Simulated assay, not measured.
Amino acid sequence: MPKNYYPPLEAGKTYHIYNRGINSTAIFKSDANYRHFLKLYDEHCSCVVDTYAYCLLGNHFHLLVKVKDILPTYGDLYPQFSQGEVNKKVSQSVEPSRQFSHFFNAYTQGFNHFCSPKRTGTLFERPFKRIEVNSDAYFSNLVVYIHQNPRKHGFEYDFRIYPYSSYNSHLSEKKTRLDREEVLEWFGNREEYRSFHEGEVDDKIEDFIIEE
């Protein structure tokens, strides 16, 4: 099995998904890039995952997601498959890993097109990295780790005011596509959520993540 092999995402499982630009190149250069990334993520991936947390930083990103227990079929997402000749994919469940690949490809095409001068080729490292989250402690520490990343990488010392993470979305009362209530219930309430973020994450979490 290749060293960089990652098994496909499985229904009902929770994952830390993260990746960076190829050769550590920037994948976000403007506010518009960040917003477009989230828009495409919603379009391509919200059908197959529930999102708990995220953070986007310059040349990499982090996502904490749970693959839906029941996945849509290709016929659900792409009605054109059911038109004309019978297509075997109509009744097949959508593959979460493939949806993420479609998402990355769509973002890359837009990013390359608007770069000046225009760039070509792959933007993200392949395959995208994923780790199954299979313990309560890992989940709790991972939420905080993801939100504290702006401080870790020198983007913003006060991670609480960094605009491209889900930290404040969890505290807000505004409508969100995040699975906010489950995250807040996990920590107990908003105050416990804030308090947990003031601490340091378990050093062991670093053993699972390779960003540099």
Rank of each mutant, 00 (worst) to 15 (best):
Y107K: 01
S101V: 05
F124S: 01
F103T: 01
S116W: 02
H36L: 14
H16G: 03
P127T: 05
K39L: 09
E10Q: 15
E10N: 14
P127F: 05
F104G: 02
L178S: 04
K3P: 09
K88P: 06
E85G: 05
L56M: 12
Y167C: 04
V49A: 07
S24I: 04
P2N: 05
F111I: 00
N23W: 06
V144C: 15
P127A: 11
K68P: 11
T122P: 11
Y74S: 01
P96F: 01
F159D: 00
K68L: 15
Y6S: 02
V49P: 09
T25M: 06
K88F: 14
K129V: 05
S116F: 03
E200F: 15
N87Q: 12
N105W: 01
F28Y: 13
K204L: 12
E156Y: 03
A137H: 14
H170W: 04
S165A: 05
R180H: 05
F128W: 08
D50H: 11
S30D: 10
F124Y: 10
H62W: 00
K118W: 02
Y145D: 05
H62P: 01
E132D: 06
S165M: 01
E173T: 13
Y138E: 04
F159K: 03
Q80E: 12
S169G: 12
Q80P: 06
E212A: 12
R151K: 03
K118Q: 05
T120C: 10
E181H: 05
F208I: 15
E132V: 14
Q80G: 07
S91G: 04
S195K: 14
I209S: 09
K66H: 13
P150H: 06
S30K: 04
G154N: 08
W186M: 11
S172K: 01
Y54W: 10
L142A: 03
K39T: 13
L56P: 04
V183M: 00
A137D: 09
S169L: 14
L64Y: 07
Y145R: 09
I146D: 02
Y5V: 03
F196M: 10
Y157F: 12
I22F: 02
V144T: 13
G58Q: 06
G199A: 08
T25A: 07
W186Q: 12
Y167D: 07
E192W: 05
H60M: 07
I205M: 01
Y34C: 07
R98W: 14
K89F: 15
S140A: 09
Q99Y: 02
F208P: 08
Q92D: 15
F103D: 00
Q148F: 00
I205S: 02
A53I: 07
S46A: 15
V133D: 04
S195L: 14
V94L: 08
T108L: 05
S169W: 01
K39R: 07
H170D: 00
R177K: 15
F81G: 03
V183T: 09
R119S: 15
P150S: 07
N189P: 03
D136T: 04
A11N: 11
L40W: 00
K118H: 04
N149I: 08
E181L: 08
P96Y: 02
R180A: 07
S91Y: 03
V143N: 12
D69F: 13
C55T: 01
K89A: 14
E10K: 15
A26M: 13
Y5K: 09
T176C: 00
K118F: 02
N134V: 06
S46F: 06
F128L: 09
D203T: 04
H170F: 02
L64C: 10
